[in-house]
Amino acid sequence: MNDDDLIELADILLISQKVKAREALCLRIGIDPNQLAFIRDGAERDFVIQLINYLNQINEQEALCKLCCKELIPVFNHGTYTHFLRGIAAKLHCNQGLSQNALNNKQPIVPSSIPASSAINKLIIGGTILLIGLAGFSLFNQNKNSSSPPTQATPSTLEAKDKIPPIEPRRPKAYTPEPELPYDIGVYGYQVDESFFNTIINSVGYPVRKASQVYNSKPAWFADRSTVFYYDKSSKDFALSLAEKLTNSTSVQFAVQYVSPENSISVKPGNERQTFFIHLVGSSRNTCKTEHDAKDCL
């Protein structure tokens, strides 16, 4: 899943109200809540973002499939978000994974056609044979031990026992980050045409994320006016210079805004200082109408 999928999935999970019972939700999707350090910390949105980001980073496909198919799709069946959730399930191959798990979890069927009396008789006979066999084996060992001298443990045998290799614990699949860029910049547009959007991208002056795109409808997480977002307070000067460059080249007024990296699943840990996101909104919305707005506008 890409960054946009993760953000949209987090928003849908919040709307579903499933996070009201955090521990129960984790147990239903197969995750031990006691292993999550953030299970009781922060607001509901913070928990949702951290949970989905954690499942994606450790490649916990089965838990994500249960979240989509068993928790969210029944809530929004035939609703606005059904098409998106089914798309996520297809990306994760959820139908195949869940069907295989269902086959593995089936209990064996015990035949019930044997009469009760016959079963009891066979059990008594089998138990008698087993006792006779154990008695004979015990006598055989006693005779063998009495006729053979005791075996002394040698250093070589003790050393061989000590060399039994330890069992390595199973580790989750490591998350492989994308190649680092000098600056990690994403550009997203709303109510703008493609040519103007490409002008913005060319005005940035740095490589931008491949996931950058224009939306036909406004996502829930989108800014109300054109804004440059930054995620480390020491990066504000660069964000201001980037907003000024965009304003001068497009005549669109850009604001700058700091966002805590904990509130964005699109910011990779350790990359906060070099990560910036640009939200481009149609020109009718790009005005700073209050004195409070004006302090971050150019």
Rank of each mutant, 00 (worst) to 15 (best):
V228H: 05
N59H: 11
I167A: 14
T154K: 13
G42I: 03
A102K: 15
Q152T: 13
N198F: 14
V214E: 03
N95Y: 12
S195I: 13
L280T: 04
L181W: 01
A255S: 15
C69N: 11
T151C: 09
L9N: 00
S138H: 04
Y188Q: 11
P269M: 06
Y54P: 08
P177L: 10
A90D: 15
D296G: 10
Q107H: 12
S249W: 07
D46Q: 07
N56Y: 02
I164Q: 11
Y183W: 00
A116W: 08
P155T: 06
Y190T: 07
V259Y: 01
N95H: 13
I73P: 06
Q253G: 10
N56Q: 00
A211V: 12
M1T: 06
L181V: 00
G270W: 03
Y231W: 09
C94D: 05
F238I: 01
N216H: 14
S260P: 02
E168W: 04
H83N: 14
G87C: 05
G270H: 11
T154L: 14
G126A: 15
I15H: 00
L64E: 00
G205W: 10
D41K: 08
F76W: 11
L280Y: 10
D224V: 13
P155Y: 07
P108D: 09
L103C: 03
A220G: 15
G186Y: 03
S212F: 12
D184F: 00
L64S: 05
Q257R: 11
Y206K: 13
S156E: 15
G186E: 05
P177K: 08
K173W: 01
L64C: 03
G186F: 02
N104W: 11
N263R: 05
T287M: 06
E180L: 10
A89H: 11
P108L: 13
A10N: 03
H78C: 05
F84I: 08
L98S: 02
A37R: 04
K66P: 06
V252H: 10
D293R: 13
L85D: 06
T128P: 01
N202F: 12
L9M: 05
L9R: 04
I201K: 15
T199K: 15
E159Q: 14
N141D: 03
A243K: 02
I7G: 07
S226P: 07
A24H: 04
P219S: 08
F197T: 04
V204H: 09
S118P: 03
L158E: 00
I132E: 13
K106I: 08
S251D: 15
D224L: 15
T275A: 08
S260R: 05
S249V: 05
D162N: 09
S226M: 06
H83T: 11
I201A: 11
Q191V: 01
S112Q: 15
R225F: 05
S251Q: 14
W221H: 12
C26S: 00
S113R: 10
E178L: 12
P169L: 12
A63C: 09
Y183V: 10
V281I: 14
S99D: 12
L158P: 06
K144T: 04
I167L: 10
R170C: 10
Q213F: 05
G186V: 07
N271M: 10
L36M: 11
V259D: 04
R171C: 02
S147V: 13
P33F: 03
K295F: 07
S235H: 00
G186Q: 03
R22H: 04
K91Q: 15
A119K: 14
L14D: 06
G87Y: 10
I29C: 00
A90G: 06
V208F: 07
A21G: 07
R86M: 09
